[in-house]
Design a protein around this nucleic acid. Sequence first.
DNA 1: TGGTAGAGGCTTTTT
DNA 2: GCCTCTACCA
Length: 736
Amino acid sequence: MDLNDKQKEAVQTTDGPVLVIAGAGSGKTRVLTERIAYLVRSKRAQPTSILAFTFTNRAAREMKQRLESANPGICERMWVGTFHATGVKILRRHGDRAGVSRDFSIYDATDSLELVKVSISQRTLEARLMRSPTSVRDQISRWKNELISPQMAAMRAANNIEKRIVSLYSEYERGLRRANALDFDDLIAKVVELFSIDPEVKRHYATRFRYILVDEFQDTNPIQMAMIEALASEHRNLFVVGDDDQSIYSWRGAKVEHILNFENLYSDTKLIRLEQNYRSTQTILDAANHVIVNNKGRKGKELWTAGERGEKIEMLVSMDEESEANNVLHTVRELAGEGVALRDIAVLYRTNAQSRALEDVLKLGSLPYQIIGAVRFYERAEVRDILAYCKLLANPADNVSLKRIINVPKRGLGKTTYEKLSEHAAFSNVPIMQILRSGAFALGSSQTKRCGEFVRLFATLESIAATKDAPQVIEAIVDGINYREHLRDNYPDGESRIENVDELINAAEVYTENREDRSLRAFLEEIALVADVDALDDESGQLTLMTLHNAKGLEFDCVIIAGLEDGLFPHINSMDNEEALEEERRLFYVGMTRACRRLFCSYANMRRRMGVIEGGSPSRFLYEIPEELMVGSIQMMEGHSRSDSLGFVDNEFDQSTGYARGVSAAGRVAAAPREFEDYSQEELVYSVGMRIHHDDFGRGVVRRVEGSGENLRVTVIFDRGGERKFVARYAPMRPT
DNA sequence: TGGTAGAGGCTTTTT
DNA sequence: GCCTCTACCA
């Protein structure tokens, strides 16, 4: 396939700043790789002078693979990676000039949360008044991403609570320094700091990187922008690609304004728009265009394709999340029956919690699937335990990791002992491990002996780590602490935990294959930065399940978007403000445009959330899709409120599974929907103890009544067993 | 110090 | 509904 004129222009405009507004599926990845190849082949650019930023490691890997397959050897000395990975590279080389030691550890989200908790607990008087650790950590992260130091934050603090959070921020920063650790935000922030402290270093990199490329530019935050600007300051050959309609990370500090302001920042910017889509059918594009046009703050663009209209978008309507899962399963089976490979189908949803119901049903249906994200491999307790040992070996000052494993498995060094050691360390301002090793602590004889044993164990592991490769070191840790035995004896699911530990060793082995640096440290670095999408295995014949956020940048032949209900998608927390709602809409837009050929939209009338059954109405976004583009439409009737028209599609309604679906446009037509009766009539009054009849669950007795009017909720205990809560208005239920 | 049971928070999205 | 943290007792 040849490049179109716009794409060609984007590839060949090599000098000066270039802003490419690239619609979904407009071939931007191709433009990026072609441009890099063009720079090297036609402009004789050195690969070392090229720096490309991607959003995920996976995207970086794919870009390198594409480049390599057409131009063998081209990537060897080229920098292609995420902002975070690039930051690590720079800091390992020159970080010492900004006071960052070269063997720093990287703290992930869990580690930094732990550090926040420690900071809070050191201020017992304040702990009670403090917001949750998570919100403190998020606030700290927001400050860091906006280049706000503790000092600056202190000046801005308006009230007592804010001042306390600021003091936690300072405490947290001290904790990081003491542990010789950087958190995710630091990986970029410290680079920016380094560049401002040491103009020599800045000039070194800015001179080296003659050509800079940035993918997913709409999702860069201020600190990343500062890094980009510094790096581009010498040559100004800055090529950024983004789509304001796909900006979905503002909650992480990303500023879509970076796109909108780019032309002000670089007045000689060349603006190029890519609007021709090579991915989806016209029907899918029309639907997506109709949805996104409801957003106000956008640059405005309309995707089109030279391809076919394609099939209509199908609605899947289900009773609850379980039947939704069944509905998804049947749809996938049907697609598979038509010859679609499972790896070409994806199920996308708003929240990770939704994966459970889907997973349960897919398991029962023995359909092979992979879930991206739900319970992350590197988040599992057993994996984290072993990794904590590893991190401690790489950096003995890492107090958070020490705290995690000092008593795992149990070796009689509990909370009290740990706290005494920690106090000694804080007093002397040295790492806890140093206190342990020096023996400079006042403890009873049995505790002193146990500490000595731990120090000896650690020394043995250290000597192994000094000479062996990562997999052998991990194996030595697992053996040295009898970890497999510990798991088998202490957990009912011990065997599967052991498998996870073995999987970790396996991952280390895979990593060290064909690698020069096989050290534990190199392996730790690699996994510290992996995202879940990085693990996506697109060669395997499995159905893929993931969040909409994770789906960014990917495409699938068929896409099912599940859980399209108001309150879930758009999410309840985003429904009361226009900006947040627009971001939800962009997220839906991203989801729709992942589909090449077939798109399914699914919602359930009831859903269990955090243990409570809630009634749901179809997502407001569904009503933004023109009806003529859909099969089995959601039926919004004139003069009716939306929630009155929760229509089941009549045909193919299956009593046994409780699901209904529209029929594909391939010949068959959906029958008129059966309308729900309106149960909101005012004479339906419920009181505790009243006997009722429910169409689906039979007879029962009212146990609780909450709310009033439209929000009247009734909890019923059914005669056949089970207790359920309904929104009275939507439940097919009457007093008897 | 370690085990257990109950409380409480959580579920928006992640490099 | 599930997971984590905490308080209390052995």
